[in-house]
Design a protein around this nucleic acid. Sequence first.
DNA 1: ATATAATGCGAGCGATCATTCGCATTTTCT
DNA 2: AGAAAATGCGAATGATCGCTCGCATTATAT
Lengths: 207, 207
Amino acid sequence: MARKPLTKPRKHASQDRSRAKVDALVEATARILVREGFDKASTNRIAEKAGVSVGTLYQYYPGKEALVVAVIERHDQEIMQVVHDALAEVASQPIEQAVRRLVVAAIEAHRVDPKLHRVLAEQIPRTGRLENIEAYSRESYALFRAYLERHRDEVRAVDLGLAAFVCVTTIEALTHNAVLYHAEMLSGDAVESLVDEATRLVVGYLR
Amino acid sequence: MARKPLTKPRKHASQDRSRAKVDALVEATARILVREGFDKASTNRIAEKAGVSVGTLYQYYPGKEALVVAVIERHDQEIMQVVHDALAEVASQPIEQAVRRLVVAAIEAHRVDPKLHRVLAEQIPRTGRLENIEAYSRESYALFRAYLERHRDEVRAVDLGLAAFVCVTTIEALTHNAVLYHAEMLSGDAVESLVDEATRLVVGYLR
DNA sequence: ATATAATGCGAGCGATCATTCGCATTTTCT
DNA sequence: AGAAAATGCGAATGATCGCTCGCATTATAT
């Protein structure tokens, strides 16, 4: 690594212990967000819970916002992993099966860490650095659009971009609302009804 | 009015000027939310912009949260007015026409005060008093469910509660996302495509 | 082993915020 | 008219927050 002048804003960790500290900071941030909410997540408190000093925190993150971004990115990657896997799995399956599988995947995705998901959805002000969080939904649009192109003969003639927007938005909203605000829809056999309805909705639309 | 001991927490305004002050406070809160964002909306700043002293603010509102609640309620009532009117208008119309009209109404509703709507959706932490904001969507569920019951013979046999959840959630999500994040879908004739697609989606699902 | 760089610390600074309270002004009552 | 109640004011208080900086500790290089 380069020999930069000393006492300058440090950025990256090169030793082992520092990586551990960084992980502890992100983990502590997530824990505080879930257990105490966004406003209690002050830099001092995060550092304290992480067993790290505030000064150390500022060596690796420029501020509270950056920590939250780190938490969001970690969580979004876990979620996108689920979606990505599901899409790969159904890539060559017909629409009916594919959509059903994707609805299930969307529910699974929302269940990865529901409490964190709720806090991120309800309490994080989308301001400053937090503005570009919809980047992940754009990725979902693109992935599903690719699926549609591969199965163009099974769907009626439409603007596939628009169709992808409609399908992804719909599935996301239904599963999101169900998981966060209608827990009763997920208990036992109620889930099947939800999956049935969502699948019928989207499949009926596509063809 | 009752003769309560003096110097006790005052609550309601009885004179004319006070009503004006209260309105000015809510209006100032809304303006600051839109133009400067949620974190800039401190009680001192709200009072200043409203041309009122902080002390006066605290005579009518217990804190910043209450002001924001007032803004939200005012905005939600305007929106529910649009939805309510549309539903009354289509009460005896067949599904196809009704759904199309409701989609248009949902877009109109999101256009009442888009900037405020965006701030409320993106920056307001749903915590404390702000938790019960989904009460308004419940009202939409109930209203649409009532429509469905009136037209039960036009829809396939389903749990109407579930169907109302699916339809309302879907229409809300599509219009919300389109208005806030895909402005290009609303320019000129693109709106018609969006309305067509949303209508087809929901109508196809219901029967 | 000694020097040098990297990492870690946390008291404390300045800014901001919500909220209060003693007093001034205005309205209502008699 | 005057008195009493209602309303309005804003400097001041105390709490909290983000963030810095001088110094201590630990790792790496020679």
